[in-house]
Design a binder for these strands. Structure first.
Lengths: 188, 188
DNA sequence: ACCTGAACACCGTTCAAGT
DNA sequence: ACCTGAACACCGTTCAAGT
């Protein structure tokens, strides 16, 4: 952050410079704006520089995914550390965190990569498992027996994933809908 | 089907020959096995032939998506024509149709394309809307008031999408789970 | 340690020319 | 109408050489 501009480099590029530039490209042009050539253009280096820092583009994508996971780790830790909070309130907060469309575009890109890239797939899978575990825990703490808790948490988690992948971007979960949803899922 | 082998062509390639070869490639190598070069190799023609039949690769993908939609049109028509069947049975059948992993890989590819290709996105969106409408109708016919029917059908549809995109391929909806799910979603 | 510069393979695309 | 063959631009990748 102390560096004024990337355009006039005085120091060599860091790992983070590359990652940062990658997210910028993704945010601007989406999915297939992430090309090695454009990255180098933006960082004022040649492609050879890219290949000194990363083995190939899959390794670079893995680095982006790791960074993304890291960025969201704070969120996840908050989820897990909410063990003392009332389960219902916990679930409401989880839903609020998930329903953030600004994160969705990156999430969708990650999951699209996961289709062809095993490293990305593994990372996404781990993240999903942690979130699901937190949701399941909340339902269990609420007092449901294991089978019932699994059904309800699976439904909620699946619906969240579905919302993320929904083809209609206009569909989003308003606070009112989320409240009614929670009400429904927590009934005896 | 009368043609013995594509390897020794006597007639010019048809539109369907290209589409068929495309699905074969997708089924064999998945996502990024669909390359113009490989297609031509398989069909024993040069790339120029491809460009006589299709404007570019996006048009070709659109053709694949259309064909896929067409293939599933029979399923959808069955869904819609089930208006006379008991709503609960209707929903059970819909869930059975959705829970077919053999369709998932293609579905996922379509939805990944939809991220960057507007034509594909539009097609996927239309398909989703039709299915959702059928689900909503079933809940309405079951006797739920509009708001309640919307909530429950949204939950079911979202969970279905979530299952489709779930990062863990081991998770599938067994008949027992589907039965319990339906039970839960149809409670008063 | 970090990067340049030039090369190479691969892929999508174009197009004049063939039958 | 349908396809060949050759060209071109673009992109990922490699690597010897520079500082």
């Amino acid at each position: 952050m102390l560096r004024v501009m990337a355009s006039q480099r005085d120091q060599p590029l860091s790992f983070d410079d590359w990652v940062e530039a990658g997210f910028a490209l993704l945010a601007e042009g989406g999915f297939d704006a992430l090309r090695i050539g454009r990255l180098c253009e933006r960082l004022n280096v040649t492609k050879g520089s890219f290949y000194w820092h990363f083995a190939d583009i899959q390794a670079y994508r893995a680095a982006l995914v790791d960074s993304w996971t890291e960025l969201r780790a704070a969120d996840r830790r908050r989820l897990i550390s909410m063990g003392d909070v009332d389960p219902r309130e916990r679930l409401a907060r989880m839903m609020g965190m998930l329903a953030r469309p600004d994160h969705w575009s990156v999430e969708r890109v990650m999951r699209a990569w996961a289709l062809t890239d095993d490293r990305v797939g593994e990372s996404v899978r781990r993240g999903d498992q942690r979130v699901f575990a937190a949701v399941l825990q909340a339902f269990t703490d609420y007092g449901f027996e294991p089978g019932d808790a699994a059904l309800r948490s699976g439904l909620l988690f699946g619906a969240g994933l579905g919302l993320l992948h929904g083809s209609d971007p206009a569909v989003d979960a308003s606070p009112e809908v989320r409240e009614r949803l929670l009400e429904f899922l927590l009934r005896d």
